[in-house]
């Protein structure tokens, strides 16, 4: 890479305050702005620590006390409770889905079938995971939706509009 970088303003600006003069070496210019951002982030983080830190500590202390109290309202806890099954299940399914999509697609190069063939089971499993009152009716709608929607998406986008899918 050439490192010539011109400063046509240099002479014109010489009478201005040299305090504001900045010269950027082109070869290093990729670090110039990120460095500024790092400083700003650092300063902001410090400010946040100063202003919010005490508040957070107070809150934590309060919560610790609340937990010690045996009469912590059960109802409140119910809504606040994390549904680990659905959350982690969704994450695992999504990761699997992303992970196998491309390899499956490479069995049928450039057809978008990798997308279609992985989306159907993904949607089916995720819907089954999410549904609260599994019954015959739900089972049928889930099955239909997880077959129809990826197929329509695949047909319209990959076939009609020629959009590249895995």
């Amino acid at each position: 890479m050439p490192c010539q970088q011109d400063h046509p303003g240099e002479t014109a600006m010489a009478d201005g305050s040299s305090l504001f003069k900045v010269s950027i070496d082109f070869d290093q210019s990729h670090l110039f702005f990120p460095n500024i951002i790092h400083w700003i982030l650092l300063i902001l983080a410090l400010l946040i620590a100063l202003t919010e830190g005490p508040k957070v500590l107070r809150k934590m202390r309060a919560r610790a006390e609340e937990n010690r109290g045996p009469e912590a309202s059960g109802e409140k806890d119910q809504t606040r409770k994390i549904d680990w099954l659905r959350l982690l299940g969704m994450l695992v399914l999504t990761i699997l889905y992303f992970y196998v999509m491309e390899p499956v697609g490479e069995i049928f190069p450039n057809t978008g079938l990798g997308f279609l063939l992985t989306s159907i089971p993904f949607m089916f499993l995720l819907s089954t995971l999410f549904v609260h009152t599994p019954g015959r009716r739900e089972f049928i709608t889930i099955t239909l939706s997880s077959i129809i929607s990826p197929t329509v998406a695949w047909y319209v986008l990959a076939q009609m509009f020629n959009i590249t899918l895995p």
Binding site: Q5, D6, H7, P8, G9, E10, M13, G16, S17, F20, K21, V22, S23, I24, F26, S29, F32
Partner: peptide, 8 residues
Amino acid sequence: LESFGSLT
């Protein structure tokens, strides 16, 4: 800054 060399 590359073109003008000054913050002003």
